[in-house]
């Protein structure tokens, strides 16, 4: 019987192929649900809570897009993807967008045919060492044993860095972050290296976080951001400008507390008025209604609020804004104007 179902599914698939897909935006509206690819669990960025509700910084971007397009932050199918399945899931159309700590690189953008719509977190590879090692700089790590996740860009960055500084190291290959934590605490390696945000999150779960230090060197650029398929620029614009709306909102002082008031009537700041749809027709240009940005910002607040709630200094992850501060505060977070 299963075989019959299989073949009938194939037949139906063949029929469906005839009706060529319209734009992703229309598909999402027709479906009434956004399929958003997230990770299977990265602390602070995406994880289901005890009630099965997805929470996190990347999840916040998904919810903002769903609210902007469909008017409901819960009209989302979260599709957990692993490092191995994420790109095929997006390329094959199983998901509409991917918000999964994915580094924007040349080959992913150009060769894999994706469009990175922006950066929601500037990360970089760092080193975590026990204080007892007595090391204060990564340049003193000659001959160290290093716990490193296999098959990732971090492995290549590490090799590059040690070669450039004419140092040697002994890799201890590991598969998952949990394994790395165990190995590092058990003393199987002197150094644990991965993205600095991951190191901070890992250290926060240690029994004695104070016994370990993050070295000051950041040896790679890891701009993480949401991405969509090549070739559907309208959908890419929707995701890009939803993210930009969250960023601009923080810059312009729009937050979840005052947005209802600001959106009620046009105020003194023309850019806020244009963004929130009280003036002009920006929403219409995007194929959405005038309130799209209001809904996106109302879900979890602006970029800064999402950051503070999920990964900021008052959370156990405890990341400082650093590079991810607004450009007005010396960071790299910068949105093109709403005009």
């Amino acid at each position: 019987m299963k075989k019959t179902v299989f073949f009938s599914a194939l037949t139906l698939a063949g029929l469906a192929a005839g009706a060529a897909t319209a734009g992703t935006l229309d598909d999402v509206k027709a479906r009434g649900k956004l399929n958003c690819g997230v990770s299977t669990g990265v602390i602070g960025f995406a994880a289901p809570d005890a009630n099965g509700v997805w929470q996190g910084f990347d999840v916040g971007v998904c919810r903002a897009v769903a609210a902007a397009v469909l008017g409901d932050q819960n009209a989302i199918e979260f599709v957990p993807t692993t490092g191995k399945t994420r790109f095929t899931a997006l390329a094959s159309g199983e998901i509409d967008m991917l918000a999964r700590n994915t580094t924007w690189t040349y080959s992913r953008d150009v060769d894999l045919k994706f469009t990175f719509v922006g950066v929601n977190y500037y990360d970089g590879q760092g080193f975590l060492v026990p204080k007892s090692l007595g090391v204060s700089s990564a340049t003193e790590l000659d001959g160290a044993t290093v716990c490193i996740q296999t098959g990732t860009t971090t492995e290549l960055n590490l090799a590059d860095y040690f070669r450039a500084n004419n140092m040697s190291y002994e890799p201890v290959p590991i598969e998952t972050n949990a394994e790395a934590q165990q190995q590092f605490l058990a003393g199987a390696c002197d150094v644990f290296t991965t993205d600095a945000s991951g190191l901070a999150a890992t250290r926060s779960a240690f029994e004695k976080p104070g016994d370990y230090v993050l070295l000051p060197e950041i040896i790679s650029k890891e701009p993480l951001g949401p991405l969509v398929r090549h070739g559907d620029d309208q959908w890419g614009d929707v995701v890009r400008w939803t993210l930009n709306a969250l960023i601009s909102a923080e810059e312009l002082g729009v937050n979840s507390a005052n947005i209802a008031e600001l959106a009620a009537a046009a105020g003194n700041n023309p850019e806020i008025n244009r963004m929130l749809g009280t003036e002009g027709n920006l929403g219409e240009m995007l194929g959405l209604d005038a309130d799209w940005a209001v809904r996106a910002i109302s879900v979890g607040g602006n970029y800064g609020e999402l950051f503070e709630k999920n990964i900021g200094e008052n959370t156990p992850v405890g990341l400082a804004r650093g590079l991810n501060a607004q450009w007005t505060n010396g960071g790299l977070i910068y949105s093109p104007p709403f005009r």
């Binding site: 299977t40 669990g41 602390i43 995406a46 994880a47 289901p48 005890a50 998952t176 926060s204 779960a205």
Partner: peptide
């Protein structure tokens, strides 16, 4: 189990 570990309450 991996997803549960990604909850800030239960990392580690």
């Amino acid at each position: 189990s991996n997803a549960i570990r990604a909850d800030t309450a239960w990392t580690g």
